[in-house]
Amino acid sequence: MANREVKINEFLCFVQNKIDILDDLSVVQICESNFKEIVIENGKSELYGLIPESGRCILRKGEDKKKKDIKDVIKVLKETPTATQPIFVAQDLNLLPPVTFDYIDVTRLLKDIVILKTELQSLRNDTVSKSELKDFETKISADLQNMSSSVQQLDKQQCVLSPIPTPSQKNSPKRLRKGIISDSSDKEKLTQSQRSDGYPSHSRHSQPSQQHTEPVRVPSYRDIALLPSTSAMPTRAPLQANITRQDRNNMHEDSFTLVERKKRNKRNNNMNGTAQQPSKLQVAQLPAIIYVSRLMKTTTVDDIKEHIREMKEDCIQVELLKQNYETSFNSFKVIVDQLKLSTFLCSDFWPTGVKYRRFRDSAAYAKKQLTN
Rank of each mutant, 00 (worst) to 15 (best):
S131R: 09
V128F: 14
K189C: 05
K189F: 09
R236F: 12
E5C: 05
S141V: 07
F88D: 00
P200G: 14
E46W: 02
L95P: 04
K263S: 09
L370S: 08
A241L: 12
K66I: 06
V28P: 01
T300V: 06
N269Y: 14
C31G: 05
R60D: 10
M271H: 07
E306L: 10
V160N: 08
G179W: 02
T230K: 13
K280H: 15
K67G: 00
V292T: 00
V114E: 05
N324K: 12
D247W: 10
E188K: 14
T80K: 02
N268W: 11
V76A: 00
R195A: 13
V6H: 08
S203V: 06
D23M: 05
T138S: 15
L258C: 11
P238A: 01
N272W: 04
I115V: 13
V128Q: 12
M271T: 09
R177Q: 14
K44C: 02
V128Y: 11
R222D: 05
R236T: 03
V27S: 00
Q282P: 01
T230A: 10
K187R: 14
Q16M: 14
N330G: 01
Q192W: 09
P287L: 12
C315W: 02
F256G: 04
D302S: 15
K65Y: 12
T191L: 04
S141P: 03
S162Y: 10
M1A: 10
L341V: 05
V160K: 11
R217T: 08
F256P: 00
L22Q: 02
Y365E: 09
L370V: 14
L320K: 14
V15A: 01
I181C: 07
K263D: 07
I21N: 02
I19H: 12
R195V: 15
P228H: 11
N94P: 03
Q121M: 12
K18V: 03
S229Y: 13
K78H: 05
L93N: 13
K355M: 15
P234A: 13
V106W: 11
P228S: 12
L161F: 05
K71R: 14
G62H: 02
K7P: 00
P287E: 09
C57T: 04
D69H: 06
L345A: 03
I316L: 14
P200M: 12
V73D: 00
V6D: 04
R222L: 09
I19N: 04
Q207D: 11
E319L: 10
D155A: 11
V354W: 00
L321W: 06
L286I: 05
R236N: 11
Y48T: 01
Y199R: 10
T213V: 13
I51A: 01
K111C: 09
S328M: 15
P167K: 07
E10K: 02
D135P: 01
E5V: 08
T371E: 08
D155W: 04
D23K: 06
S122I: 03
L47W: 00
K36R: 15
T274C: 06
L190F: 15
L227I: 09
S26K: 01
F136Q: 09
A364R: 06
P208K: 10
I164F: 11
R264Y: 13
S209W: 15
T274G: 04
K333I: 03
P351A: 10
Q29M: 10
T371K: 10
P287H: 07
Q369E: 11
R4L: 09
L239P: 01
R108Q: 06
P52A: 07
Y291W: 03
